[in-house]
Every structure is written in C-alpha cells, then in structure tokens.
C-alpha cells in the first residue's frame, strides 16, 4: 500500500488504436511531499502518463496507485485526493475568474459559505483578486495558468498534477508559478507531479526527475545525481596575463584532471564537484594570479538526456553561468 500522499506505478502501458505505444512500461514512485519532474520532449508520453494517473484514461496494461488508491478500481477516491492542471489551461473565455471558482467549488459540493471563503482565499493567493471579475478572455497566459492552479487547489488536494504548467509563459510568469509550486510542497506538504519539456524547470523545481523518451523512463534521480552520472563540472580560468597560462594550469591541476578549453584559458574537470570552486579561487588568490575570467561549466540535464538518448532536448541551456557563491569568491580574487 502506497502512502496516502504518494504515487506509485508499475509497468504502466498505454497503446492507442492504430497508434504507437505512447507509454511503454513505466515504473515510478513519488514520495509524499516530493516534487517530481517528468522531463521529456513533445510526444514522449508525459501527458498520457498523467491522464492515466489522474484516472481520465484507463491503462492498457500495468497498474498505478495514487494516494494509496488504485487508479482503475478506486477512481473516485483518487480524484478526491488529487488536483490537476492539465495541458493548455482549460478555461472558458466567457466566464470570469470568480465564476470559474464558483463552478469548481460547487462541483466539489462545498457549502455556499465555504465556496465564497475558499474562492477569495485562492484568488488572493494566486494574485488574481483584482482581475477576479474580468472575463478570462482578457487574461494573459500567466494569469490563466495561475487561475488553473487555483482551480486545481479548490478541495485542498494532497497530490497535485501539473502538465506543462509553464509552456509558453514569459520568464516572470514562470518564476511566479515556480515560487507558488515550491511553497505548496514546502509549506503544505503537497506532493507535486509535474511534467515539463524545460530543463531549467525540472532542474530548479524538482527534487527528483524522471526523464522520459518514447514512452520509457530512461533516467531517474535528483538533478544533481543525474548530472553527476554524466560527468563532473569543469572550471575554466583565463588569466589576465596570457603568459601565465602554465602557472594557472599548474594551480588548477591540484583540483582535477586537465580538459579541453578555449585557446586563452585552461580548464580542469573537478575531482569533487563544484564545492571546490571556492578553494580554487582562494588558491589563485594565494598565488597572486590575476584572473580575467572564471567560469564553472555544470553538466546539464540536457547532457543527461543526450547521454541516454543520443539526442538533444530542444531549447536546452548548455552551460551554467557562475553561481552567486562563485561570484562572491571572484570579487575577492
């Protein structure tokens, strides 16, 4: 029996008529309170998996339990425990935000007083109080997604499914939504199952990531573990005085093995991860070597995807700029 707040699937398969095996044997386990990121390109089977987990699509094979209930035989119990914001915020452009909440709370059988209170509360939380009485037709993409989220939370579910919640949103709207999802998991212990085609999203938000391709999970783990699997980060240093390349190389060699770098700099693959970065900065400082440029190259989830599938996820960020901690260290250099 799964925990009341968790998700567990075994050998989940969905075959569409005259179609491919959209989902081809998925096993997964999401712990209560965890944010699980389901990362994959378009058409990988993410949404189909979500539809099966939220009981809207019966699996062809396999089984799944959500909140401790079987998705096939205990659908009503599953639905009572979950909230879902499925792809492309499904809203009625002719209704206002408040009317959407009234509809949703009524469908959940709340009393008039509860309806009103809960609606006001949720509108406030997603920042739509001002816009509550405007028709959804006039909402921006970000507002629609936030309303969608509020509707999914109406009955205080313990598990939240978000299918590509930020696809097509601008950066600011995306960050706002991330903050709210994080808050839900942290403060309210909500388990979040989130699909995305954005590496940064999975990286920033998920405690654990499952990478899915052609209906199969090809890699699973925390973003850091996954990245560590494909390789350790590298550090590249460009000395202010180009003549000092050799000296810089010697210093860096203490922290890992040399690897390829641009003509003007030197680079090493760090032996023990990015924690070394501060040490490197201190060592350079101690040796009185002036540095013009220092950069940490993190392996990204795209490298993971590439390693596992031989293809690159579209729109992948290929390197990470210096982290705030490293920037601080650089200042002192």
């Amino acid at each position: 029996m799964t925990d009341r707040h968790g998700i567990e699937a075994q050998g989940l398969v969905r075959v569409f008529k005259k179609g491919p095996r959209a989902v081809d044997g998925i096993d997964l386990r999401v712990e209560p309170g965890e944010i699980y990121g389901f990362l994959g390109p378009n058409g990988a089977g993410k949404s189909t998996t979500v539809l099966m987990l939220v009981t809207l699509l019966p699996p062809t094979e396999g089984s799944a339990r959500v909140a401790g209930y079987d998705v096939v035989s205990e659908g009503p119990h599953v639905r009572a425990s979950i909230g879902a914001a499925l792809q492309e915020a499904a809203l009625d452009p002719l209704l206002t935000g408040r009317e959407h909440l009234r509809l949703q709370t009524t469908m959940h059988g709340m009393s008039a007083a509860d309806r009103k209170q809960r609606s006001g509360e949720l509108l406030e939380r997603v920042g739509l109080t001002q816009a509550a009485d405007r028709k959804v037709r006039t909402y921006s993409g970000g507002m629609k997604r936030r309303l969608d989220l509020a509707l999914a939370l109406v009955h205080s579910p313990s598990i939240l499914f978000l299918d590509e919640p930020t696809t097509g949103l601008d950066i600011q709207s995306r960050l706002a939504l991330w903050a709210e999802v994080e808050r839900l998991a942290r403060d309210e212990g909500v388990t979040v199952f989130l699909t995305t085609q954005y590496l940064e999203e999975a990286d920033a938000l998920a405690d654990r990531v499952g990478i899915i391709d052609h209906g199969k999970i090809v890699a699973e783990g925390s973003p850091a573990d996954l990245k560590a699997q494909v390789g350790r980060p590298t550090v590249e240093v460009v000395p202010a005085d180009r003549e000092e390349r050799d000296r810089a190389a010697a210093i860096l060699a203490r922290f890992g093995e040399p690897c390829g770098s641009a003509a003007e700099g030197v680079a090493v693959r760090l032996r023990s991860g990015e924690a070394d970065l501060a040490e490197i900065v201190r060592a350079l400082d101690a040796e009185n070597l002036k540095v013009e440029h220092l950069q940490l190259h993190q392996p990204s989830l795209d490298d993971v995807f590439l390693a596992k599938t031989g293809r690159s996820l579209e729109g992948a960020g290929d390197e990470e700029e210096v982290t705030p901690a490293a920037e601080l260290a650089l200042d002192r250099a």
Binding site: R79, I82, L86, A90, L91, H108
Partner: peptide, 16 residues
C-alpha cells in the same frame, strides 16, 4: 468546445 479545450476533463476530475 468544452471537450476540445479540456474543460470537460476539468469537470470530470470533480465528484460531479
């Protein structure tokens, strides 16, 4: 249109 936009799915997830 409700079916096409997924609005019906939203309703289907409630105890309606």
């Amino acid at each position: 249109r409700d079916i096409q936009t997924g609005f019906l799915n939203r309703l289907a997830l409630t105890p309606m």
